[in-house]
Amino acid sequence: MLSENAEKLIDKWMNDTTFRDALRRDPQAAVAAAGVTLSEDERAALGTIDWNLSDEQLAERVSKGM
C-alpha cells in the first residue's frame, strides 16, 4: 500500500493531463513543482518507472517469475 503522498501523486497522474505530461518528461521536477513530498525510496522509485508506458506495458515488463 502506498503512503498518502504517493497516493496523491497517482491520483494527480490520473486526473491531471498537464501533470501527466510533465511527469513523463521529468518525474523529479514534475513532483517538486506539484509540491508533493515523497520519501527517499519513493523519489528513487519515481525515477525507475517509465511513465511513458501504459499499464499493460508496465505489467508486461516485469517478470512473472514467482
Binding site: L2, W13, D41, I49, D55, E56, A59, V62
Partner: peptide, 10 residues
C-alpha cells in the same frame, strides 16, 4: 496497476 507497480518499485 500503475498504483501497485509504483508500490513495487518503492
Amino acid at each position: 496497476v500503475r498504483r501497485i507497480m509504483f508500490g513495487v518499485h518503492i
